[in-house]
């Protein structure tokens, strides 16, 4: 008898550890799946990559499944320092970062322009937003064709202006040009800017949509008050509207910086880093030396990845710190 009663009273008076801490535990239970995947696919690979950058490895395992990697310490980083392709890539990354920032003001101006009530405005807005919806690969292809000196818009317009249509030796139509058609994507000087221009197209659309939502929250009474005080045009924009768009600007800058550093797709589609490596950026150079057909230097690729990771970490830490400060201030 006593045996049957005792456990019953115990559970009632002393709730289980789980039950006592359920408020503390519940969030973790929900977080665990995400954390596991985040660890497997993001955190662990980062450390693996850091570790691999200290090896020389062609990515192969021997017949028994042992890695053929050889420890070389910091040699990969020493090589990187002397590698002109690395510096070209880094320089291009900086060009991307600076020029990509144009997306923020341009997005703002398009947003201001579209922030009117006209019939069919939703349609125009969606048209402006369209490039962001289509894949980067498609944007790269379209611009690749656009720049093509033979059949692209650039080539056709140039031919109409500077070339003469004649027939060649076999009687087929051909063009003789006073000046050769500019071949933007094959020019060492211009190819990177050509790709950045292509990348800006969807990025401007992205910034525009961020600002359009931001503009919805601009306080009408403040605009009204400023107008009564005689503010208009640039002053109105700079001192009244832009400060209220600060959250949108912050996000626009963050996504643009990250977008610039991640600029891989367009380069892979439009030039594969060419001509002779002059349009490489770090992300594509990493792919090229490690994974591409002529790569197979995984250690070296990892050291490139590590440098890129360092640069990203710098920006991301800054952004996180800013957000943290803002949240503290908001409290």
């Amino acid at each position: 008898m006593t045996h049957a009663v005792l456990p019953d009273t115990e559970t009632r008076s002393e709730p289980g550890w789980l039950r006592r801490n359920k408020l503390a535990i519940a969030p973790w239970v929900f977080l665990i799946p995400a954390l596991i995947f985040f660890a497997i696919y993001v955190v662990i690979p980062i450390f693996e990559s850091l570790w691999l950058s200290l090896y020389q490895w062609n990515g192969l395992y021997d017949a028994e499944g042992n890695s053929t990697a050889v420890w070389v310490g910091f040699e990969n980083y020493v090589k990187l320092w002397d590698d002109p392709n690395f510096w070209t890539s880094l320089r291009n990354n900086i060009a991307w970062l600076i020029l990509y920032m144009l997306a923020v003001p341009l997005g703002l101006f398009i947003a201001l322009f579209l922030n009117q009530t006209v019939t069919g405005m939703r349609f125009y807005k969606s048209m402006f937003f369209f490039p962001f919806v289509i894949s980067q690969v498609v944007v790269g292809l379209i611009f690749g064709w656009f720049y093509n000196p033979d059949f692209g818009v650039v080539g056709t317009v140039w031919k109409a202006m500077f070339c003469e249509e004649t027939t060649n030796i076999l009687g087929n139509t051909t063009f003789v040009c006073e000046r050769p058609v500019p071949d933007i994507l094959s020019s060492e000087q211009w190819a990177t800017y050509g790709i950045i221009a292509a990348g800006l197209w969807p990025q401007i659309a992205y910034c525009m949509i961020l600002y359009l939502t931001g503009l919805n929250n601009v306080a009408a009474d403040q605009i009204e008050a400023a107008r009564l005080d005689g503010a208009k045009g640039w002053k109105m924009l700079w001192y009244v509207v832009v400060p209220q768009l600060k959250p949108a600007t912050f996000i626009a800058v963050v996504v643009t910086v990250i977008g610039a550093l991640r600029s891989f797709d367009m380069i892979a589609i439009m030039t594969q880093g060419g001509p002779f490596g002059s349009t490489n950026v770090l992300s594509h150079y990493m792919f090229e030396v490690a994974i591409s057909e002529y790569g197979e230097r995984y250690g070296y690729g990892s050291s490139v990845a590590t440098v890129l990771f360092g640069i990203m970490l710098f920006f991301i830490s800054y952004f996180l710190w800013r957000m943290y400060q803002d949240e503290k201030g908001g409290r």
């Binding site: 000196p149 033979d150 060649n168 051909t174 071949d183 994507l185 094959s186």
Partner: peptide, 20 residues
């Protein structure tokens, strides 16, 4: 041919086929 750096080997057949 001009602009060879922006052509694949298949693209380069076009001027060949055209007689240029």
């Amino acid at each position: 041919v001009d602009n060879h750096a922006s052509m694949s080997w298949q693209d380069a057949i076009a001027p060949f086929a055209n007689g240029d």
